[in-house]
Amino acid sequence: MSNNNGFRQGMQIAFRLGTELTVATFIGAMLGYGVDRFFDVRPWGLAIGVVLGGAAGSMNVYRAAMLMTLEEQNTEEDDNNS
């Protein structure tokens, strides 16, 4: 079971972190573009939106990675206890 578990977790990390960064940057860019259209401040909305989106994406990836390290430590402790 533990072998299978490792494979599953590896796949989870691979699939999860990739989309997280891309999508957040994209959302930031779209929001910035929307701000440009509504308030007519082209190009500042898009420029700032992409940067904020990238920051949000990095933060999401960082949080996901922290969660995974926590899980890993927990499972290691469990293994040591048992």
Partner: peptide
């Protein structure tokens, strides 16, 4: 704003993945 973007990104990354 960064947190709002990261909140909005969640459902979209869920669906797109």
């Amino acid at each position: 704003p960064i947190e709002i973007i990261s909140m909005l990104a969640r459902p979209i990354s869920l669906a797109v993945r």
